[in-house]
């Protein structure tokens, strides 16, 4: 699934980053790499951007980036 589909409180592992160029480097710089654990912690009042906990830091990303990052949820979603 895409990172943009994650709900608040859910955790996952990054599978792939389908972005290239400057933005990819920026994401790698701040610690968004394959296999990194990521947790969705909160969203802004408008539902975007979303704040993620990545390697001890809280990073906000817009939906455009989240759409291009795929993850694997750490635990099954209870619907």
């Amino acid at each position: 699934m895409n990172l943009s589909d994650i709900r608040i409180g859910e955790k996952g592992k990054i599978k792939s980053i389908k972005i290239s160029g400057n933005m990819r480097r920026r994401l790698l710089d701040i610690g968004i790499t394959d296999g990194t654990e990521i947790e969705c912690v909160f969203k802004s009042p408008f539902g975007e951007p979303t704040a993620f906990l990545i390697k001890g830091a809280v990073i906000a990303l817009r939906n455009e980036q989240c759409d291009k990052i795929t993850i694997k949820l750490s635990s099954e979603r209870v619907s």
Partner: peptide
Amino acid sequence: TPSSYTLELPP
């Protein structure tokens, strides 16, 4: 168009 962005929220 708006470029992508990342913002760090410090503790």
